[in-house]
Design a protein around this nucleic acid. Structure first.
Lengths: 328, 328
DNA sequence: TTGTATGCGTTATCAG
DNA sequence: CTGATAACGCATACAA
């Protein structure tokens, strides 16, 4: 007597007194005569049968797994993204294979190889490698980075967010603005935050300055920049738009050490929509990315049967949220 | 001519002019004659062959996947844990299957079923369901919750952390302490934070109070508690130990609204070791959990060949870190 | 409609 | 040490 670890379809078939194929049809919801179906379902319940993922994958060449390639899960924005993408996949009975690149461009490329070996059914990637090769034979969706019309890209409306930030600061009474950002080496969707901001400032006729730091440059350069713009204890600007909430938070710390108070002396708006523990108040006033919608768009796109007919850039609306660093 | 999507071992064998079994041996690092090995390796390189995970899993009944069952990735502590566990698995050429329970006890149980169906090689779980059934036929490691001697549990030294918090507050000049915590319904390892704290207070002869809130009770009860302990504008305590950093952060907000200043009027120590963006400064003074060591212990335990001989409780040392809410 | 038989890619057994 | 062959569990084309 074979001591099977877990029952197989053959066991169920024997238990139910039907053929193997019939069991398969019941499991997969194909038409089966009612009394046969009942016999099979009873047998399944009796044996506690669960189909074997590997067997099915081997046979169908579909794994029901989507790879998510992302820098890490420690940045709260990424954490939120991972969370919602996983939920969106789960709803569709898919699993997620998580790959942390740690911003390492080699790892980004290696993971693409690795997940293909694992025969994932698709890839969702948020990467920074400018020369990344996108495999053509597997559904591939990117976040925040446009590669080509054949690779759908999902992103928040970064340009609109920049406009919104400028308008909001204007509305809140700011007369002179500045834009702070980090990471100019790669041109991606978030780069448009600046474009929108500049565009709105010009349209509104507001003077502004910019400070863009290359990746790897010490953040203290921002402090130098701010210090250089303090005259007689007053900052030259009364409104600041910062590329990300994380950077905004850091900058606010610098302002504090320079004895500039927020939002009294200068109002600050960040970007992303990060909350302290993923809930409750925003850590700074911010342009909120619609993370859940982004996740949903990524998943429905990567799973869509006709990827080639999908729009190549899916742009989702942002909104402003108060977070204590603006007057309200 | 068959238009194979991806080359198989048979293709490699044909290309190399050897038998299928020989290719398998080369791929799996088993002894093979040098010239055969070379022929096979060349053929593999030429064809870009990668072995098929499903085929191997079907045959060997091992998937090289470990399931991680955890509430979410949004809480920074969990995010850090997910991150380090994934890295520890990756080092060993294992993949992680992430399951978010959202603190839902039904989902906790369902996921255990689901991942077994997916034939994972082991489970690491951080759960709250007191009646969770632990499957005996699959390596299972828990975090922060002891089920039985046959289910290894990995946790920080919660008792020691409680002791450390009390001693530190004492050292920093506190004369009267309080302990605040949430979630008393379930007794788990973190419950020992209180025990350690109490034990140290008694030993040091420091008076203290406790406020433990059941899960689901509104947090405003803490505010009521604090307000009730303010007399003539002064708080009865000058030192506070709070169950988690997250709660500590909330409580500090309450204190601020009650016009009690931290750390001047009252010093606060939390637990976990959460930093704003996973790096830089701690959000409150805290007892830091050794997350990386916890992750490493979980992974090496769940993958150990002889799980039954593993210690049933692995307790890892914590340490104090300054985070601005104590005098230093 | 139900049953049967084949093959997916791999590893393992066993005979050369 | 190598080569042929039989499973592993499942889905499906085809035969009944």
């Amino acid at each position: 007597m074979k001591d099977k670890q877990t029952p197989t379809m053959a066991d169920v078939a024997k238990e139910a007194g039907v053929a193997l194929g019939t069991v398969s049809k019941v499991v997969n919801g194909q038409p089966v005569g009612p009394e046969f179906r009942k016999k099979v379902e009873d047998a399944i319940a009796r044996l506690g049968y669960q189909y074997n993922t590997s067997g099915r994958a081997l046979r169908t060449d579909r794994t029901n797994v989507i790879a998510l390639i992302i820098p890490n899960t420690v940045n709260p924005f990424f954490a939120l993204l991972v969370h919602h993408i996983n939920l969106a996949l789960e709803k569709r009975n898919f699993r997620m294979m998580l790959c942390f690149t740690e911003y390492d461009q080699n790892r980004e490329a290696e993971f693409i190889q690795m997940v293909r070996q694992n025969r994932v059914d698709g890839i969702i990637a948020l990467t920074y490698n400018p020369d990344l090769t996108i495999p053509a034979d597997i559904p591939f969706v990117t976040i925040d980075r446009f590669f080509s019309v054949s690779v759908p890209c999902v992103a928040a409306d970064n340009f609109g967010g920049g406009v919104l930030a400028a308008k909001k600061l204007h509305e809140l009474g700011c007369k002179r603005l500045a834009f702070l950002r980090i990471g100019s080496t790669l041109t991606n969707e978030p780069s448009k935050r600046k474009d929108g901001f500049v565009s709105a400032c010009v349209e509104l006729g507001i003077p502004f300055e910019m400070m863009v730091l290359d990746d790897g440059t010490p953040l203290s350069r921002f402090q130098d920049f701010l210090a250089a713009h303090i005259h007689e204890g007053r900052l030259d600007f009364d409104g600041l738009f910062v590329g990300t909430d994380m950077l905004a938070y850091t900058v606010i710390g610098m302002l504090k050490s320079l004895h500039i108070s927020v939002p009294q002396d200068v109002q600050v708006i960040g970007f992303d929509g990060i909350r302290m523990f993923g809930e409750g108040e925003y850590i700074v006033s911010t342009i909120v990315q619609p993370v859940q919608e982004i996740a949903e768009a990524c998943v429905s796109t990567v799973l869509s049967k006709h990827l080639s007919t999908m729009p190549s850039l899916i742009c989702l609306p942002v909104q402003y949220a108060y977070g204590g660093t603006t007057r309200e």
